[in-house]
Simulated scan of single mutants.
Amino acid sequence: MKKADLAAALAEQAGSTRRRPEPLPPPPPIPATGAERAEAAEATYRQPSRDGTAPITAHFPKEVRRQLKGLANELDRTMHDLIAEAFNDLFAKHGKAEICPRGQ
């Protein structure tokens, strides 16, 4: 964004005809469809370590996060590692391969 020009603002306010401010460039268009939004999102930077991954989001009471974070601290592990362990335990319980990577 261009820095405000005090002289131009004062001249415009006073009705000067000698100095006209430059028009602002139009904002970039907002994608209308879901596919266009997905394309725009793909064009943004993504950390190389995130390649081949997808976020998994779930909402729980704040106390669940506090307890998980405390346990990770007690065990000197990351929350990611504990969650991966929990997913692998769940997969094993239901006869699925333990495919969740740990130790990141």
Rank of each mutant, 00 (worst) to 15 (best):
residue 1 M to K: 04
residue 3 K to P: 07
residue 3 K to Y: 14
residue 3 K to D: 14
residue 3 K to M: 15
residue 6 L to S: 09
residue 6 L to A: 10
residue 7 A to G: 02
residue 8 A to I: 01
residue 9 A to M: 13
residue 9 A to F: 01
residue 11 A to Q: 00
residue 13 Q to I: 07
residue 13 Q to E: 11
residue 14 A to I: 00
residue 17 T to M: 04
residue 17 T to C: 03
residue 17 T to S: 08
residue 17 T to W: 07
residue 18 R to E: 04
residue 18 R to K: 06
residue 19 R to V: 15
residue 20 R to N: 11
residue 21 P to N: 09
residue 21 P to W: 06
residue 23 P to S: 11
residue 23 P to A: 13
residue 23 P to V: 10
residue 24 L to T: 10
residue 24 L to C: 06
residue 26 P to A: 11
residue 28 P to S: 06
residue 29 P to Y: 15
residue 29 P to R: 02
residue 30 I to G: 08
residue 30 I to S: 10
residue 30 I to T: 15
residue 31 P to G: 06
residue 32 A to D: 15
residue 32 A to V: 09
residue 33 T to N: 15
residue 34 G to K: 12
residue 35 A to W: 10
residue 36 E to N: 12
residue 37 R to A: 14
residue 41 A to I: 07
residue 42 E to K: 14
residue 42 E to A: 15
residue 43 A to T: 11
residue 45 Y to Q: 02
residue 46 R to Y: 01
residue 46 R to K: 13
residue 47 Q to T: 05
residue 47 Q to R: 09
residue 48 P to M: 04
residue 49 S to P: 01
residue 49 S to R: 03
residue 50 R to L: 15
residue 51 D to Q: 02
residue 51 D to K: 01
residue 52 G to R: 04
residue 56 I to D: 03
residue 56 I to T: 08
residue 56 I to S: 09
residue 58 A to E: 00
residue 59 H to K: 02
residue 59 H to T: 09
residue 60 F to V: 15
residue 61 P to H: 02
residue 61 P to W: 00
residue 61 P to A: 07
residue 62 K to Q: 04
residue 62 K to H: 01
residue 62 K to T: 11
residue 63 E to T: 13
residue 63 E to S: 11
residue 64 V to Q: 08
residue 64 V to F: 04
residue 65 R to L: 10
residue 65 R to Y: 08
residue 67 Q to N: 12
residue 67 Q to C: 12
residue 68 L to W: 02
residue 69 K to F: 05
residue 69 K to M: 09
residue 70 G to M: 11
residue 70 G to W: 02
residue 72 A to M: 05
residue 72 A to E: 03
residue 73 N to R: 14
residue 73 N to Q: 14
residue 74 E to T: 13
residue 78 T to D: 03
residue 78 T to H: 01
residue 80 H to C: 01
residue 80 H to G: 07
residue 81 D to M: 01
residue 81 D to V: 04
residue 82 L to V: 08
residue 84 A to N: 03
residue 85 E to H: 09
residue 85 E to S: 02
residue 86 A to N: 03
residue 86 A to H: 07
residue 87 F to W: 06
residue 87 F to Q: 00
residue 87 F to N: 00
residue 88 N to K: 02
residue 90 L to V: 11
residue 91 F to T: 06
residue 91 F to N: 02
residue 94 H to S: 05
residue 95 G to M: 05
residue 95 G to I: 08
residue 96 K to F: 12
residue 96 K to G: 07
residue 96 K to S: 10
residue 98 E to C: 08
residue 98 E to G: 03
residue 102 R to N: 05
residue 103 G to E: 08
residue 104 Q to N: 02
residue 104 Q to Y: 04
